[in-house]
Write a protein that binds this DNA or RNA. Structure first.
Lengths: 186, 186
DNA sequence: TGGTTCTTTCAAAAACTTCTGAAATCTCCT
DNA sequence: AGGAGATTTCAGAAGTTTTTGAAAGAACCA
């Protein structure tokens, strides 16, 4: 493989790891994901360890978590006892998986809590303090339920419509259009 | 203020702080934000310290950061030397501010880096390894630029259209509709 | 079954992030 | 200018998350 590609991969891994930390994903996990995505081929635990300079335990844990997230797949090579791992290559599918998991793990439980909190002050109907509190809570709930609904659409198999809409919406937004349109199929 | 409201506020602060950590915002900063949002009235540094049980330094730093994010405002009370802080009360405006800042701070620099990385392997046109690498990079770039475009729309003053669209989109998504529709004006 | 190879686990260590509190700085008033 | 009160800063302390590496556990084979 040309040396420049190797360097480019390293930089990609670094910036993706950086991004991860900003969004609450551990740097190593994001780096492992980046590596599997950008190399595009199945790697085994030792490949990951060596390329990223991390311990076996760390590699194992990151890979496991990425499998749980659904952005990395197990691959078996015939005649080889080792397990290999391959990153999801369809970028839309990858982000759908990320959105699905984050909503499931973080937003949905939050919504449950907010509903409980609403019940705490429901119908003690006296006073401006109570009703304005309830109104604020209702506003947040309404917004998050909207976001939840939109993300369900995005994530669902029928999400293609949203994908098209988003693409159009994004493109009109007065931006440079440097690269020619590529097509993609998972 | 009724005791139940105080309790509900505390729980709101706790869950919002929790959420913050999952998304890469420090718990305290998210809690301060939650407190200012849910109380709906201007509080001074000492109020925040006492209510949240945090130090002066921590309160000061969190409030400053929230001002930078644009989700909290300074308020001056006449005849009082202290500064007061008020949370943005319009939930849509609040999330627009959050999206604007996160894009500006995290996604835009990422896009710059990815463009640089693309240049590293542009036009060394030999070999499957190089071209498939370039294709993966192009896919990521295309997706993130789309997201950038959509978020610009969401954030822009003309974003009302998107707000309406999102609301509709979210609502059709087969969900419970427990609360009556409230209207909101910033 | 025993040996070999690969994977997972987890307690302790390291690394990193956030908080504290007292001192320095700022602001406004007389 | 002097002083009172409010705010910011920042080095060190506290707390949290992540990593390591060695041991335990699986899976496979002969």
């Amino acid at each position: 493989m040309p040396e420049h590609v190797h360097e480019a991969q390293d930089r990609f891994v670094a910036v993706w790891g950086q991004m991860g930390t900003a969004w609450g994903i551990s740097r190593t996990m994001a780096e492992v994901h980046a590596l599997l995505f950008i190399t595009g081929e199945p790697l085994c635990t030792d490949d990951v360890m060596q390329r990223l300079g991390i311990s076996r335990g760390s590699a194992s844990m990151s890979l496991r978590a990425l499998l749980d997230w659904g952005v990395v797949y197990r691959v078996h090579k015939r005649g080889d006892r080792k397990e290999y791992f391959e990153g999801e290559q369809d970028v839309w599918a990858m982000f759908r998986a990320i959105v699905r998991e984050r909503m499931k793990r973080e937003v949905d439980p939050l919504l449950v809590s907010l509903h409980e909190i609403r019940e705490m002050t429901e119908g003690i109907g006296k006073g401006e303090a109570v009703s304005s509190h309830n109104a604020r809570l209702a506003d947040i709930l309404e917004f998050l339920e909207m976001a939840d609904g939109v993300s369900r659409r995005f994530v669902s198999p029928q999400g293609k419509g949203l994908q098209v809409a988003a693409t159009l919406l994004g493109k009109v937004s007065g931006r440079r259009s440097s690269d020619g349109g590529r097509e993609e199929g998972s």
